[in-house]
């Protein structure tokens, strides 16, 4: 059951609904009344948020890749890969799939962006294989139009000794799910998965992660922060599974959200499913408003209230942005956060 299957078969009952436990806050069946026709061809213009950072570029225009059959990419030489999913369609749908391999010892920086206009239904599926000793950094920037419906699912598999660092930044859409499913089948790998959602108007974003530790001595560290205002809705679902025998696993998950209006909503489900005993697992979750004492302090120092609020909000989200290792991507992310928070003032 998924959006991809529903698009492929035209069968609406394949759409996940709120009755499906993992989709309880991101109902697609109640929203999509019919599977729209396929999107037309699109020749994306060069650019994208990471254009200035060099490296190779692969572009998908309305779900079609730019000539790479099977859309398979193998990392070599350490240069960044800019992966762009561009959409421009009205009342149409498209889907795309991509496979990325990081051979042993390679370092790959994947700069992934979602850009678009119109009101479309898009499904993206990524498969990332990270071999022993390889390191992949994935920075995902989602700037979708308010009327788009997007489901992006990444399946990441790590071998022992591999590492994967990810940051997702999104401003949401009509309904949007950015899902990452990471498997350390033999353990021994290092995973860091962070996220930022900044939502306004009636936008929705769902950051879902599932990390499965199948073997010993794996680590996972997660930090997600969200800011919602107006009538927006943020969803965070994080699941860490430690299978039998995966002793020595260390997993930490944090989700913190600010609700800046009376009608906004945040739903969270940080889950731990543990089948091994020699583990250290923890999660923390906080949802609330800005600290009035901190605002008072700033005002007392002569700072106007709106400036104080903006500064505190930016600092709140900044903790995640600071964790991005790639300097250029970090600057892009920081500018995006400022723009989002400014735009929502």
């Amino acid at each position: 059951m998924s959006l991809a299957t529903a698009i492929a078969t035209g069968d609406l009952t394949q759409l996940p609904s709120r009755r499906d436990e993992d989709w309880r806050w991101t109902d697609l069946r109640g929203l999509i009344r019919a599977i729209p026709p396929a999107s037309g061809l699109l020749e994306p213009t060069p650019g994208g948020p990471f254009a200035g950072l060099g490296g190779e570029e692969i572009v998908f225009g309305n779900g079609r890749s730019d000539g790479r059959a099977g859309a398979l990419f193998t990392a070599e030489g350490g240069a960044p890969l800019r992966l762009r999913f561009c959409s421009d369609a009205r009342g149409a749908r498209h889907a795309s799939t991509m496979v990325i391999n990081a051979p042993g010892g390679e370092r790959l920086t994947l700069l992934e962006s979602y850009e678009g206009q119109g009101d479309y239904l898009a499904d993206v599926e990524l498969h990332i294989e990270i071999e022993a000793g390889a390191h992949v950094t994935r920075v995902v920037l989602v700037e979708e139009p308010a009327e788009s419906i997007l489901v992006s699912t990444a399946h990441v598999r790590l071998q022992p000794g591999a590492s994967f660092h990810q940051v997702v930044l999104t401003s949401g859409g009509r309904r949007q799910r950015i899902e990452t499913r990471v498997t350390q089948a033999q353990g021994g790998a290092e995973v860091r998965m962070d996220g930022v959602y900044i939502l306004r108007d009636q936008r929705h974003a769902d950051l879902t992660t599932v990390v499965t530790h199948g073997g010993r001595d794996g680590t996972t560290s997660q930090l997600t922060k969200g800011v919602v205002r107006d009538q927006a809705r943020g969803v965070f679902q994080g699941r860490i599974v430690v299978e039998k025998g995966a002793d020595g696993t260390e997993a930490r998950m944090g989700h913190h959200a600010l609700i800046l209006s009376d009608k906004a909503e945040v739903d969270a489900k940080p889950e731990l499913l543990i089948f091994a005993d020699d583990v250290q697992c923890a999660h923390g979750n906080t949802i609330g408003a800005l600290d009035e004492a901190a605002i008072f302090y700033a005002r007392q120092r002569g700072m106007p209230e709106d400036v104080a609020r903006a500064m505190l909000t930016e600092a709140f989200v900044g903790e995640v942005v600071d964790r991005i290792e790639h300097e250029g991507a970090r600057d892009v992310a920081r500018a995006w956060v400022s723009a989002q928070l400014g735009a929502s003032e």
């Binding site: 609700i259 009376d262 940080p270 999660h283 979750n285 906080t286 949802i287 408003a289």
Partner: peptide
Amino acid sequence: GLSVFEHEA
């Protein structure tokens, strides 16, 4: 937006 929720596990 005027409530506080804290959860730790």
